[in-house]
Amino acid sequence: MAIKNAEVMHQIEEMLHDLKKRDKQQYNIIFSLLNEVFVEYNTGKSKSVEKKLYEMIDAEVRYRTQKN
């Protein structure tokens, strides 16, 4: 049976609880990354996870730079 994302992501969220407190942005990126990886695993189709990761990191850094 394919992995059910909602339940699993809830468990992952609990596992990353500490990180969420320390660094929410990083947590968001990792959470999104894992979600994408699960979808890719479930469907067996590439979800360009690597590209999305680059984009998320790039967006976060540019946001921080502008903020500063």
Binding site: M15, L16, Q26, I30, L33, I57, D58, V61, R62
Partner: peptide
Amino acid sequence: NIVERDKFILAEKINKNVSQFHAVF
């Protein structure tokens, strides 16, 4: 080269956390 530096530092932190997460899991 602040942007490039910050991107790779963040990427390394993410990598480290995902690896740790993997190891702890």
